[in-house]
Write a protein that binds this DNA or RNA. Structure first.
Lengths: 129, 129
DNA sequence: GTAAGGCTTCCAGTTACTGGAAGGTCAAGA
DNA sequence: TCTTGACCTTCCAGTAACTGGAAGCCTTAC
């Protein structure tokens, strides 16, 4: 059994975040000491690590909730999980396209800007359109 | 002179957002009617459009504040603007790298997942590591 | 005159935490 | 045994940038 601080170290999450996940019933502590300290078992540690990784993959807390549900439920079909993942991938691809064009447009503006003391600036002009 | 609703239409921003920008002193209305309705002149309309575009480029509201300041101030140097833009570009490039690796990892997981009724799912396993 | 729609302010909620205050608990050293 | 520092608790507030909704004027068209 881990205290919340040890759980935080083991999962590489801030203590505050572990407590927060407990508060929102995402990953609850498996129990409490008689003095009210949270206790985490290996099972919860794994769920916390799973959650940290899913979050770092850009899954929302709500999606983590669904994934944890599937993760917990040994009888779940991989179809459900794949659907969630594909949805995420599509979002990432959209974001990539968006960021690429942003990058190109902004780079173009910056390239044509002399970056000196003169007030005439293509970036400002480009943004004002 | 535009009412807030007309300003919203002219700038393609939600009315709520225009009011919000006024509240946080980003782009204030140029005046009020005797009944207290906000009034926007062409100058403010341009500042709102400028802001919308800068925001869509990923500049934070705080950065917009600085840019609007430079935009307003005819004596500003293009160096200041370029510095802000280059900073933004660097951030975008970081984000692109991050998203690319995210995409590849997640795609790899999804590809190896059969997506059927069987419970064995490489995505879940990959996230649990 | 009245009904629809626009405007006002103010308050609350969103997402996923993060920081801090006030106070109880625990383990180690003097 | 006392004390000190680290760790734990709850609760409240703040972050960014809006967004939604309520209550209540104002305006415009029929």
């Amino acid at each position: 059994m881990y205290s919340i601080g040890d759980a935080a170290k083991a999962t590489n999450l801030p203590t505050k975040t572990v407590r927060y996940y407990a508060d929102i019933n995402l990953v609850k502590a498996s129990g409490r000491t008689d003095k009210g300290y949270r206790l985490y078992s290996d099972k919860e540690i794994n769920k916390l690590i799973f959650t940290r990784r899913a979050r770092s993959f850009g899954f929302s807390v709500q999606e983590c909730r669904e994934l944890l549900d599937l993760y917990e439920n040994r009888g779940r079909s991989s179809r459900d999980v794949k659907a969630i993942a594909l949805h995420r991938i599509a979002e990432i691809e959209e974001k990539l396209v968006e960021l690429h064009s942003l990058h190109d447009e902004l780079s173009h503006l910056a390239e044509t800007c002399s970056g000196d003391d003169r007030p005439d600036c293509p970036i400002i002009n480009g943004l004002a359109k």
